[in-house]
Structure formats: C-alpha cells, structure tokens
Design a binder for these strands. Sequence first.
RNA 1: CGGGGAGUAGCUCAGUUUGGCCAGAGCGCUGCGUUCGGGACGCAGAGGUCGCAAGUUCAAAUCUUGUCUCCCCGACCA
Length: 577
Amino acid sequence: MRYSRMFIPTVKEVPADAEVASHRLMIRAALCRKVASGTYTYLPLGWRSLLKIIAIVREEMDKAGAQEILVPVMQPAEFWDKTGRSTDYGPTLFRFTDRHGRKSVLEPTAEEVVTYLAAGEISSYKQLPINLYQISPKFRDEFRPRFGVIRSREFIMKDAYSFDADPEGLDKSYKAMYDAYCRIFKRCGLEYVIVEAESGEMGGSGSHQFTVPCESGEDTIIYTEDGSYAANLERAAVDPLPKEKSSAEIPAIQEVHTPNIGSIEAVCKFLKTKPEQMVKTLIYSTKDKAVAVLIRGDHDVNEEKLRLAVGGKRIELADEATIEKVTGAKVGFAGPVGIANKVDTILMDHAVAAMAVWVTGANKTDYHTKNVVPGRDFDMNNAQLIDIRYAVDGDTYDGEKLLFKKGIEIGQVFKLGTKYSEKLGAKFLDENGVEKPCIMGCYGIGINRILASAIEISNDNNGIIWPISIAPFEVLITCVNQDDEKVAQVAENIYQDLMRKGIDVLLDDRSLRGGVKFKDADLIGIPVRVTVGRKSVAEGNVEIKLRSETKSTKVSIEKATDKAIELVDSLKEELKT
RNA sequence: CGGGGAGUAGCUCAGUUUGGCCAGAGCGCUGCGUUCGGGACGCAGAGGUCGCAAGUUCAAAUCUUGUCUCCCCGACCA
C-alpha cells in the first residue's frame, strides 16, 4: 500500500477527551474516530489491525474444534424474557420495538439465540459435543462508556458456546477454549494473567478471566506473591482476621444520641472512633426475604459473594421503606442487636466476628450503641459467619499476602451448566434414551480490547509499538527524498520486492519533509522500518531498524529485502505458540 | 442515574466575570516562493447560524430560561 493514497489522517495535537494512552494513540495514529459516546468508526489502519486479530482468533477457534456461525444482532426480546435476563441485564440491554410492535433487543451476547438454535437442532448425544462461535458486533448500553474502545457501547466480540452431554465433556470443552485463549493472546503479543472469576448474571459454576495488567485497566486482579492464588476482585477470597484480644473490662452496652448522624464517617467523627471499630448493618432484600449483612465499617460488601451466599438469587440493597420496617429506624441507624427476629437471615463477615467490641447502629432513629460485645450483647448463633467483603490491602488468603493489580479484561470463559438449556429446551436423548439438558459453556473475547490493551502496554512518547502479528503493516518503507528520482526508485524497488514476497508493506511515498515522515512512522508504530534516503543510497545502502529500538543498521540496497524479511520472521518467531 | 466540568474554525483553545470598537490565536487546509534526514519558513487565501431553541435589550458568543451533546468521579461487563 502507498501511504500517499491511503487514508491515514494522523493528528499532532493530543485529543482533549482521551484519558488513557491507548485511546490517545488510537486517535492520533488514525486508527479510529469517535462517532458518539461509546461508538467508533475504524479507519483503514485500525481496521487492518482488527482484521488481523480476528484472523488469529478464527484460526485458533477452528483449530480448537469450534465452528463459526453468525446469529442476528437483532433478537426477539421474548428469548430474553424466557431466561430472565431481560431483567437481569436491566438497562444495559438495548431494546426497541419494530413497526408491528414486536419487542426486540440488540445482542449484548448470544446465549439465548444459540441455545434456541441448539434446542431445535440437537436431539441426540451423538451430535455432542459441539461448539459454535461467532465474531460480531455486540451492544451494551453502558451507563458510562469510557477509555475509548475499552468500554464502548458497541464492540466486536468473539463469543463461543459449547454443548456437552455430561460434566466431564464440559470440562474438556472448557479446557480446549482455555488453551485456545492462551494461544490467541500469546500470538497477539499480550502479557496476560488468568484469574479465577465469578460468573455473575451469566450463571454457572466456574469461570476464568484473562486480564492484561496495566495501570489504566478497570478491573482489579488479586494474587499471592508465590503465584498459588489469583482471582479478580469479585471473586477473591480472604482469610478470617485474627481474633482481637478483648481488654479486661468492657463497660456495659450503651446507647448514644447521634442526631442526624448516619454515615460511618460522621459517626466516627462524632464519637471519636474509627471505621474499623464500627459495624455496618446493611439490609438487603431478595424477592421474598430480608437479609442483614454485618460488615466492618471500613470494608465493602462484595455483592457477588452475597449473591452466592443467598443461593445465587438476585439480591439488592433494600429500599428505605423496608429498612425502616425492619429496623424501626431511619436509614443510617441499623444495628445487629435485636434484629435477629426482624430479618430472615443475618450474614456476618469474618472480620466482624474477629472484633472484640462494636460500635453499631441502635435500630432507633438518631441513636448508635457502643460497647457492644459479641457473644455478650449479640448472640453469635443468630448469624451465619462468612466471607462476604471485598479483599483489601493487608488481607491474606491461605496465609499468603494478597497483592493488587489493575488490568483490562480481554476474555472470560464460563462453565454455564444447564441454566440456558433448561429454560430454552436444549435437550437430547442419551444412550439410554433418557432426556437431558445440554451442559453448556460460553467463552468471550473482546476483539477491540485486544487492540487497545496491546497499545496500552506497548507504546512510548512517540507512538505505538505494535506486536507484529496485529500491526496494520509489517514493514514501513520511509522514502526520505521522494523528489529524488533515484532514491524514490530504490524505495519503490524494495517495496515491490517485499510485496512479491508476501510481506505486508507500506511505502511512505509522500512528497513531504523527512521529519514529518519519521514522526508519522513512530506514531503509527509499524514494527520494521526501512529508511531510504539520499545519503545512504549514495553509498549503496539503506537503513533498517525496529520500531522498538533506536539504533538502525545499514544494509546494502540489494540485501535490504532479505534483511527486512529476516527481522519480520524473527519478530513473528517470538510470538509463536 | 447521582455528583462535577465543558460545548466558539477540521484539531487544541482564548474571548463570557464587566453586553457594543470581538469573530480571534496556534496547528491543519489551498496557492506561490524559499527549504528538504526528526512535525521548516515567508507571503497570500479558504474556513465559524459561537451546540440548539425561546426570551431580555437599541444591541447577545457574553445576561435569563429550557433543551441536546460530550468529558470526568461512583454502581455493570468482553
């Protein structure tokens, strides 16, 4: 491709609304442009990279035995009602009504439609296992799109769905996808980590998340230094804290007047105490039950752990009316003492149980209680002791200190089980003629996030440094003196030669000053660069360098092609699996 | 959705407090000339219903009200 004829509108100025490096560089290097909040147009360079990523994903999926299909982006809302995800997905689901009044959604993922397909076509164990995947746009009405394409409302996802006859089969299918993911991300040049994850509203029994560690990531991954444990924030388990020693004499429980002081900070200030000496009592409700959650003042409830604790049911913070009914007080004054017979369940975090003395709400508007001694003033048998909070700095798991790191989630694999197959009737007859639901798994990769995270972890002040596998081009020839016919001809010859030999090459044949071309070259980050200029051509040479290095080497014009190919090959070699 | 901020030339922004002499700068773009290996320089030019709508006023980018959009901080996910 000739630069002079290619649409590569690079920009010198840093875009005002781009916060993270990858977003800034994607705009500046002319990979994409924003159309509206969370939606982007990909320009030729960006699309070329995406196509390369897609090709890698497709190749590895096929190799892992999955088969590519394509389901409609526009799906009947009815499917989503059947699985309950119409409500579970909530406002994130894009909905619309057609001219006949039929309700539809734009696919955020395709469990429903693929399971519906399986329900109609699969009837025998002989057809299993099967794994179907697609690579297509997905839509999610995120409350806050941000970081460019990292969290957007429309994105390209590879989503795969496996159907197996038994749990052992699912384990195999899952492993095949897990391994394929490792190969895909390696080939894309990403440094990634795999952590245990929660399956969230996907449902199911097991999940791993693939994350690229970097500062601008939105996800938090938690791991132990010895590598024995790694999980995401939603999942990470923590050890119980050591029991505090109680000082000899603790005065009797005492009610304190705290007018209009409901929040933890305010109470602490008022009572001159610290959040870690307080116990928060949060009232949650499921469809039919009220649950009190006791957690230390400086900790946060992990609602995913909470959801699992109540048997995977949908659970949310109770509304004001419920709280007032349960506690007999306004919001902000709930406490554990005497609440046992008002709620259906009391869940107590380990850290609360470890405390010697509590400061809590009094279940009385404008009052708190202090000197609450667990066991003495609160019957510990009323509460179910569990791990229900987010891990914080200083926590351990299995005795090992937990460390925290930010990252971008680029893929996740789930063991779904039969949630979807049962609801949508994807059943088969086993070898004994017994009808059973298919056991499913689902597997997602954020294609655009691979692009963004590759840039995020590999760039410098001057621009992108692409891994060669997903770079828009493999080689860039910079012709420094385009108006010098001889120089231009040398560049042209190398260009033709590289193209003939199957190299993805871009020739910068614009009639511009060298400096401009070098700046653009750094910005768009093509990994191998051949510089053809008057000086070196006069000596019979050209210069070759890697984008990732500053030094260039002189090679004779005749050997330029071979040298460039050699560099391309060695870069590719590093990404082989 | 809650809290904060911003919409003026293709881009980055000044001007708004104190209404008029205020339609501006730099970059980019077009033409000519000089330059020509790290985003050159000179001259000449093109380009804007000041987000939109209503209102106040002799007069509105500037004041009032409404509205839309975008960005940042919190709760979801690839």
